[in-house]
Amino acid sequence: MQLAAASGLMGLFFVVVAAGLLALLAGGFWMNSRIKYREPPRPRPEEQPHLPPDGAVHEIRENREPDEIPHIPKGGRPLTPYELTNMHTRPSASKDRPRWSKGSSGSFGGGGLGAH
């Protein structure tokens, strides 16, 4: 019974915890205002990006194909990934979109029915 009885010490503990939480919250607001004060000001309307003089830039669709991997002469050692340069691409002469198989996008979980 004595443990279940209310004591003034327990009430004081809750008041101290609540005061600590309020101090943390106030400190967070204070730190946020300091960080915002150091940020550069928002751009003015005349500093916003504008469309180019020619108007909006439109999307260009083209098929690209990779450069060929260098061939190794017979008896030569294979190239390591570090010896290969960045693989560049070039425009493809073909205008057909590459497809893996009919009705499939080629990706796992692409939403198609798969090869049946």
Rank of each mutant, 00 (worst) to 15 (best):
H71K: 14
N63S: 01
T89G: 09
E59A: 14
H50F: 13
G20D: 00
M31V: 10
K36T: 15
F13P: 00
I35R: 10
A19I: 10
E83T: 14
R42N: 03
F108M: 11
A19D: 06
S104G: 03
M87Q: 15
T89D: 13
H71S: 15
T80A: 06
G109F: 02
A26D: 00
I35C: 01
A115R: 03
N32C: 09
T85I: 00
A5I: 08
E39W: 14
I69G: 01
W100T: 13
T89C: 13
E83L: 13
E62V: 13
L21N: 05
H116I: 14
I60L: 05
H116A: 15
N63D: 01
A5K: 07
P78H: 08
R42A: 03
K95G: 13
T80L: 04
E39A: 15
Q2F: 12
L9C: 05
F14N: 09
R38N: 11
G75L: 01
E59F: 12
G20A: 02
L9M: 11
Y37T: 04
M87R: 15
P52C: 01
L51M: 05
E59P: 02
G75S: 01
P78M: 12
S94E: 09
P45T: 02
I35M: 06
N32Q: 14
D67G: 07
P43Y: 00
L3T: 06
S104E: 04
G27S: 06
D54W: 07
N63I: 08
I35L: 13
F14M: 09
E65S: 02
A26M: 08
G106N: 05
M1L: 12
G11N: 06
K36V: 15
I72S: 03
N86G: 10
L22G: 11
A26K: 02
P53D: 15
E83P: 06
S92D: 10
L113W: 00
M10Q: 12
E65M: 05
V57N: 00
Y37N: 07
P66K: 09
T89L: 09
P53T: 08
R97L: 11
I69R: 14
E46C: 12
M1H: 09
P66A: 12
W30I: 09
R44N: 12
L51T: 02
M10A: 15
D96W: 02
S104T: 07
L9R: 09
S92E: 05
G27W: 00
R64E: 15
H71Q: 15
W30F: 09
M87G: 04
F13H: 03
K95C: 11
K74R: 13
R64P: 01
G27A: 09
P45K: 00
R90T: 11
K102W: 10
R34D: 10
G109T: 04
G76Q: 10
T85A: 05
P70D: 08
E65I: 07
G55N: 01
R61A: 12
W100L: 13
L84E: 11
G11K: 05
S104Y: 00
P98Q: 08
L51F: 02
I60D: 01
H116C: 12
N63V: 09
I35P: 00
M1A: 14
G28D: 07
